[in-house]
Each structure stands twice: as C-alpha cells, then as structure tokens.
C-alpha cells in the first residue's frame, strides 16, 4: 500500500514540477550559450540577464517544490480529497509515511535539477580545479557531507511544514493561519537552536575553534569536515525526532474540513 500511495503522490507532485525543471534547464542552457558572447556589450547584458533568470529559476524551483509537497499533504489530510484518503484501507501512519517519502524524493529530484542547471551555467575550469583541490585534500566525503546537509535542511523544512499543519489543524478555527505560524516559528526556533549547538560545539572543540576564531585562511578543510559531521548528526537527530512527533500526532486522528 505504501508503494502505491507514494506512486500517486510522486505523479501529482512531479506532473507540476516538470514545468519548472524544463524551464530551469532551458534557461541554464541559454545562459551558458550567451556566456560565449560577453565580449560585446549587448552580449554581456544578455548573459547577465539570463544568468540572473537562471538563478531565480533555481530558487523558484526549490520554493515551488516545497510548496507543492506541502500542498499535497494539506489536500490529502484536510480538504475534499481527504475524504477518500482517510477512508482507504490503510493505517494512518502509512499515509503519513507516503507523504514523507514522496516529499523527500521530490525535493531531492528538484535539488538534482537545480545542481544540473547550476553546473550548466557556471561550470568552468576554475571550478573544476577548485573541486579537484578539495577532493585531493579531504576526499570526496566533504562533497557528500555538503550534499547531505542540503538534503537534511530540505527535509527539516518539509517536516516543519507538515508538523505545523498537523498541530495547526487540531483546533477548530483559523487552522491554516495557525499552521503557517507554527511551521515558521518551529523552523526558525529549531534552526536557531541547531546553529547555537553547532557554535557551542565549535567553541569547545579545538580543531573546529579554528573556524570561528582565526581570521586567516589556514587549513579550513579539515575543521570543515568535523563541522559537517556535527551539523549532519544534529540535523539527522532533529529530523528523526520531528518525524516521530509528526507520526504520533497525525495517527491520533484528524478533523477534516
């Protein structure tokens, strides 16, 4: 059942996102092509415009992916379609899981598309060399660590949105408003707490201390690795706790509109 639910969720989310993916890639390609004409004034202006458009396409893709996955949760939990979803012969926690899985997968796909677009626009020999340097010093792990951080941050946003909706819809009026407020508050407070913990960790650890106290560009890569590990572990803990809190609250029952 979980697989079937995820299948339909992904279909609905990606049917919409396809437009953004297409636009993002096309504009990225156009920007890259126009980068060859920057020797002329007109050419340069065109490149700058396309470059800016590409960047806003990246941002727009990300934001719309987030909105689309949260919209799916809302429509299926509280709106008209919820009358079908909540009466399917599945456990409520399975519905919750399908939304979590499809949301994370969708955000991941969006991030990949954004990365591809970014590389299309900006990848040049300088960047390749910089990446080669980093990989030589500390291996491929730092790249993976950064990727994981981005994915975890996206997952954190999704869960903040979902838990905000679950808690906001426990009351009888102003449910959407309350959901948005709770979600945003949760996001900023927990994000702040997380960053605070990282900072405290950093102060205590002598290696990482380097990043926060020394102004010169010494060997940042190794402390960065440690920092990434701390950040990722804390994020992982946070999203895991949030996942279980959300699952528990959602399984207790919903009140549809």
């Amino acid at each position: 059942m979980l697989r079937k639910l995820v299948k339909y969720d992904l279909k609905w989310i990606e049917k919409f996102m396809l437009i953004f993916y297409t636009i993002t890639i096309i504009i990225s390609i156009l920007a890259r092509i126009s980068s060859n004409f920057t020797d002329t004034v007109a050419g340069n202006i065109l490149y700058q415009i396309l470059k800016a458009t590409a960047i806003s396409a990246f941002v727009s893709t990300f934001i719309n992916a987030l909105i689309r996955v949260l919209a799916r949760f809302s429509l299926h939990s509280y709106k008209d379609e919820s009358y079908l979803i909540h009466t399917l012969p599945v456990e409520r926690k399975t519905v919750y899981n399908s939304k979590i899985v499809s949301s994370i997968v969708s955000m991941f796909i969006s991030l990949v598309v954004i990365l591809i677009g970014f590389l299309i626009v900006f990848l040049d020999t300088n960047m390749i060399n910089a990446i080669k340097d980093i990989v030589n010093v500390s291996g491929v792990w730092i790249i993976l660590g950064l990727a994981l951080t981005v994915i975890l941050e996206s997952t954190f946003m999704i869960l903040a949105g979902i838990i905000g909706m679950i808690l906001g819809h426990k009351s009888n009026n102003n449910r959407m408003a309350k959901s948005v407020i709770i979600a945003i508050a949760m996001y900023f407070i927990l994000q702040g707490v997380l960053l605070l913990l990282v900072y405290l960790f950093g102060l205590m650890d002598t290696d990482m201390n380097v990043l926060f106290t020394v102004t010169e560009n010494l060997n940042v890569i190794d402390p960065m690795k440690k920092l990434l590990v701390v950040v990722d572990i804390l994020y992982l803990l946070l999203v895991t706790i949030m996942y279980f809190v959300g699952k528990r609250q959602y399984s207790k029952g919903v009140n549809v509109e």
């Binding site: 609905w12 008209d80 379609e81 919820s82 009358y83 079908l84 009466t87 399917l88 012969p89 599945v90 456990e91």
Partner: peptide, 18 residues
C-alpha cells in the same frame, strides 16, 4: 481502523476525487 475501512464503502456528500 484499516480493517473497518476495508469493509465499509462510504459515499460522502462532496466530490472527493482527484
């Protein structure tokens, strides 16, 4: 729960289809 839902067929007052 999921058991009752497998054996109950419900027609609501509103359109609930995608």
């Amino acid at each position: 729960g999921s058991f009752s839902k497998a054996h109950i067929s419900y027609l609501p007052e509103r359109t609930y289809l995608d």
